[in-house]
Design a protein around this nucleic acid. Structure first.
Length: 358
DNA sequence: TAATCGTGGAT
DNA sequence: TATCCAAGATT
């Protein structure tokens, strides 16, 4: 570690010591955090870290509690049917995380005797654990020295050192500077301190520099340009797509749903049958995508939903299956009153509400 | 490397 | 209302 013997060593120690002292006073109390001085359960750390990927703390909390209640140990989660895990994850988004979570639990049980490995490289080899999560678990759950870089750390470090390179090209330099300031002891607390700092003071907009323990060391602050960092490339416009979707009710009160393919958008989740979602979809072709021939009632208005890389407007059609009509090959029938607890993704929950009307 | 992959709260 | 963006991983 030549870099860690550099003349910046004093600055490194000062920043780490100052930040850890601040953390000891101002750390957030979160359900997955152990009491100060005690080591947390690696299973709990892993579960929380996966849930927190691109997801806010308030959104994660109820899911975290529910998962721990349903599956208190990694063995319990590994033994659960994957569809039960998908159902419990419904509404949290990025559903490949749920599938990988289950695969990871099984791998830990089958390949690691039910104990999470402490090595960053071994963690990195598990499903759903990338560079950030591997480093976070190694540091937080096992006390290893690891360089933990998430979005908060990127922002804090880009400001501390006034890194002008636009993202994502700046990631290399940010990682190197984070390595420089990461201490040998309490690396887990240091990582959480950086994230707490980014979440509560060094925020994207209107950072509270007056309260920041690192303000004296911050190059961005010294130039008064703290909000300019991290520099980001111009973003592309979000395309708009449309489609048709069908709420088919059977005479006995069951509704037709189907499960999406395991990979891709909403992978493995339940949906109502419908057309593909395209920029050039024509509503006049809607009936061609209906699950059965027959009379469809177009419900006024549309269901609007925004995904990360496109926005969507769905026109909803309602129909009743004629007596004696052929049942569609694909899909399954669910009792109408069970739909609310079936674990629908949010966009399908919106369709359900829209189809039911007022 | 650059897309892809959800959702809801904040501004 | 539009945009941002939150403890990223995968391909």
């Amino acid at each position: 570690m030549l870099a860690r013997q550099s003349p910046h060593a004093k600055s490194r120690d000062t920043i780490a010591a100052t930040l850890l002292a601040w953390y000891d006073r101002h750390r957030r109390k979160l359900p997955w955090r152990a009491l100060p001085g005690s080591m947390p359960d690696p299973y709990a750390v892993w579960l929380s870290e996966v849930m927190l990927q691109q997801t806010t703390v308030p959104a994660v909390k109820p899911y975290y509690e529910q998962f721990l209640a349903l599956w208190p140990r990694v063995h319990d989660l590994a033994a659960a049917p994957v569809d039960d895990v998908m159902k419990a994850w419904a509404g949290l988004g990025y559903y490949s995380r749920a599938r990988n979570l289950h695969a990871c639990a099984k791998a830990v049980v089958e390949q690691h005797a039910g104990l999470f490995p402490a090595d960053e490289s071994a963690l990195r080899a598990l499903p759903g654990i990338g560079p950030y999560t591997a480093a976070a678990i190694a540091a937080i759950a096992f006390g290893r020295r690891a360089v933990v870089v998430d979005g908060n750390v990127e922002r804090v470090v880009a400001r501390l050192f006034a890194i002008d390179t636009p993202m994502p090209a700046a990631k290399t330099a940010i990682r190197a500077r984070t390595d420089d300031i990461t201490p040998d002891e309490r690396a887990g607390d240091f990582a959480q301190a950086m994230m707490d700092l980014g979440a509560t003071l060094c925020t994207p907009k209107n950072p509270a520099c007056a309260l920041c323990p690192l303000t004296a060391s911050c190059l961005a602050r010294q130039s008064g340009e703290q909000e300019r960092y991290p520099v980001k490339a111009a973003k592309v416009a979000r395309p708009h797509r449309t489609g048709a979707i069908f709420y088919l009710r059977r005479a006995d009160g069951h509704v037709l749903v189907r499960r999406r393919p395991p990979k891709g958008l909403l992978g493995g989740m339940l949906e109502f049958p419908g057309s593909e979602w395209r920029s050039d979809f024509s509503q006049s072709d809607a009936s061609a995508h209906a699950p059965v021939k027959g009379k469809w009632q177009r419900i006024a208005g549309t269901v609007e939903h925004v995904f990360t890389h496109f926005s969507l407007a769905l026109t909803v059609y309602r129909g009743v299956l004629p007596t004696g009509a052929a049942t569609p090959e694909t899909g399954q029938w669910i009792e109408e009153h069970m739909l609310d607890s079936a674990g629908l993704p949010s966009v399908m929950q919106k369709v359900l509400v829209h189809a039911r009307g007022k």
